[in-house]
Design a binder for these strands. Structure first.
Lengths: 148, 148
DNA sequence: AATGAAATTACGCTGCG
DNA sequence: CGCAGCGTAATTTCATT
């Protein structure tokens, strides 16, 4: 858990990749003052040690007609199996992320839906699939992410 | 709000890029059955119309010594300026995302901190910076994201 | 152990049909 | 959208500190 997994140049590279996940090694190399090969080796290493877990695209789902975005808190009975609840969440395709929480609620789920009716269906599936005893949805009006 | 911004091939490309944001056009082309040039034109178009808002790297911050991750609900007084509150949040570098919420709470903030002491400092900054009347933090124990 | 330079392979990009 | 050509980048190899 101590961390010599990334020196200051690695952190620079991570920042560059945060801003542009498709940046070329040439671009990064000229920015950090290393050769292309050195930069590639560092990025490969960051992946192999698990600091970098992947690369992805950022999508504006509202432009695709998915206008409803929520964080939904889920609570379940003490007898419910936590892992089973999580499996239920993962099985619902509208669920983008699942967070297990210390305390209350038990789970926080990020959901994307086309409209309110669709959201209702999704939440019903979450409730029926497991032993959820309650949900509370926070509908997102706007969002901001660092470095976008 | 109707959407002809992405046909089924575009959706395929978005899915491929979700799984690997650095996938080459060649890889994608062979998967969707189009030429490399056609795929590049489609991806460029998806960017220009705003469906694709960017590309980024996924980082396991626990490997960098940032072990505490929270969703923190923020409530502020009715007289507080919502935009000003958001600006305060953005100004705190440990804040990764800010979501404005319909109803209660007013804002949901995703925070990354090195440890609990650090988290406490961050929350104090959030409270002092604006007119927050209360915060409630949900500490993340584990998380899952679709397609990782 | 990490780097830079060079050579090969693969890919990105553009214009044209 | 596909094809073809040229420029650029990725990737491996080798030598160096």
């Amino acid at each position: 858990m101590s961390d010599d997994l990334a020196d200051s140049i690695d952190l620079e590279l991570l920042q560059l990749l945060s801003r542009d996940g498709r940046a070329t090694y040439s671009e990064m190399a000229s920015r950090v003052g290393l050769s292309v090969a050195a930069v590639k080796r560092r990025v490969d290493r960051l992946q192999s040690v698990g600091v970098i877990t992947g690369f992805t695209v950022e999508i504006d789902r509202t432009k695709l007609g998915w206008t409803v975005e929520t964080f939904t808190e889920v609570r379940y009975s003490g007898s419910a199996d936590s892992d089973e609840m999580i499996q239920v969440m993962k099985g619902v395709e509208e669920v983008e992320s699942v967070y297990t929480i210390a305390g209350d609620p038990d789970i926080l789920v990020k959901i994307n839906a086309r409209d309110h009716g669709h959201l209702q269906q999704v939440i019903n599936r979450l409730r029926r699939g497991g032993q959820a005893i309650g949900t509370k949805s926070m509908i997102v009006l706007s969002s901001w992410h660092r470095g976008s």
